[in-house]
Structures are given as structure tokens and as C-alpha cells.
Design a protein around this nucleic acid. Structure first.
Lengths: 127, 127
DNA sequence: CCCCTGGTACGAATTCTCTCGTACTACTTG
DNA sequence: CAAGTAGTACGAGAGAATTCGTACCAGGGG
């Protein structure tokens, strides 16, 4: 199945030169990311679906929480996105009033090679 | 780090010819193994350590629960090994009074390529 | 300035998981 | 059969995760 997944290109295009990015919210450094915590964060179908959608469809840059069209109240989404950020899976930046999410592709490929391919190949249970 | 891990050989030697293996305990079929369940099972340090130890040190065949020298009561170990079996990570066979565990290497490599390499590279947090 | 948008923080209820004691079963060995 | 070994099942207590309502806050546009 995943000959393609293993060699897939997950890189994000660099931001245009001269654009100043907001600082990321607090997150574990690359070397502090724990595989157990990553696994725990990904054990929730909603969360692994979010990471997968970011990987497969976030071609330009990053996205707000509402972009995912998740049918949950806002406070639940805050919880899940914080879980992903604290596990080291996504990086969140504050753009004015909204908060944008991106997968930490470089860090995750360096620390857990092959993990992102597994996430990209995931499909929901009820289909 | 894991140029070696990605190409590591996890195969178990086949049992000697003529040896009748006990039937495995109930477990999900290969196609029923869910990545979320696998992630949830591996999010516990004790359990991912068990799978890693089976991968790296179970050269001959499989092992009972007590072989792992885990300092926990028996009923706790039953819980963790059942969790691993129900998630599809290990296969358990009853050999007389004792129960032996082996990682489902073929199934996991086929379904989630690269996962076992991640587990083999894992190290406990307090070191 | 008011209000809308896109969030956060807190807290409560519920559910799930982990841990482990106790009692029990199955098999082997003497 | 008795004793020892290896493990299960059940259930309870503690702790953690999930869900979500409510209240709140910050920035942008009229």
C-alpha cells in the first residue's frame, strides 16, 4: 500500500520573504517530544483526523480550527488542539484574533521517521 | 538515527516442522487492526516497553509474562497484555499452564509499515 | 463604541483507564 | 490427591480524559 506514503513529500513551502511570523504558542522542543505522548494524542479519532487533514490538504500554509468543519463546540476543539500542541504534533500561531495550526513536519520526520506516513494513510472506522 | 531501524529484520524463525502450535487467543484479524487502538495501547510506557523488548530480545520465539520481570501484580499484567492483544499488537498462545506472547510482526509490517521501527527505537523517559 | 468573529479559561458531569486485592481455575509434578 | 505455578475474572477505588456549558477576552469593521 504505502510505497508512496513512505516517500511522500510533506514539506511546507517557506513563508514569503519579509513576512514576520507570530511566535508559536508554548510547545515541547524537538528533543522533548515523547513517543508515548504522541501515541496518546493520536489515539483519538478526531485528533488523528485533524493531523491527517492538515497533512493532506494544507498545501499553502496553516489553518484555523473552524476550517476543519468539526461538529463540536468550541471549547471541545480548544481541548483537542491543545492536546495536539502539547504532545508536539502541531504548532499553533496567533494571527490577530484567530489561531492557526500546522503539523510540525520537520521535527516529526526527524524524530519519528515514518510516523507521518502512517497518519496520512489512516482512514476513519465508519466508512 | 534510524537508517538501520527502517530496514531491520523483525521476522520470527518459523517453528520446527511437525510442532503443533496452540491456537491463539481471540484477536483482531489483520484487516481489523485499527491504528487508533494501536496508538492507545502503545501510549502506556509499560506496554510499549513490553513490545520493544519482545522485538529486540525475543530471538527464539515467544515469552511468558513473567519473563519481562515487571514489578507489578499479576492482575495488572493480565490487564496490560490483554490490552496489547485486543489492539492487535501481540499474539498470545496457551502452552499448558502458561501463556506466551509474541509480536504480530507480519501483520503489523503489512498494515502499518514503519511502526515497528518506531517502537524498537523507543527509550524510556527516565534514563 | 458596539458587535461580530474566533477563540480561551474554568468548572462540572460523565466516562474511561489504571491499579491492584481477592478469589478462583488450569495444569504439572511429586 | 496435594502443592506449587501461571494466570484469569471480578470488582472497587483513584485518577485522568472527554465533553461541553458558561463566561469571558481580543481584534477588526462598521
Amino acid at each position: 500500500m504505502s510505497e508512496a506514503a513512505l516517500t511522500r513529500d510533506f514539506r511546507i513551502p517557506p513563508p514569503p520573504p519579509g513576512v514576520q511570523l507570530p511566535e508559536p504558542l508554548p510547545e515541547p522542543a524537538r528533543d522533548e517530544i515523547r513517543l508515548e505522548a504522541v501515541m496518546a494524542a493520536l489515539s483519538d479519532p478526531l485528533r488523528i483526523g485533524v493531523v491527517r487533514k492538515l497533512l493532506l490538504e494544507a498545501v499553502d500554509f496553516d489553518h484555523t480550527c473552524t476550517w476543519f468543519e468539526l461538529d463540536r463546540p468550541k471549547s471541545s476543539l480548544t481541548h483537542h488542539f491543545r492536546t495536539l500542541r502539547e504532545a508536539g504534533l502541531v504548532r499553533q500561531r496567533q494571527y490577530g484574533p484567530s489561531r492557526r495550526n500546522q503539523v510540525r513536519i520537520e521535527d516529526l520526520q526527524a524524530r519519528f521517521p515514518g510516523l507521518l506516513a502512517l497518519i496520512a494513510d489512516w482512514t476513519p472506522a465508519c466508512e
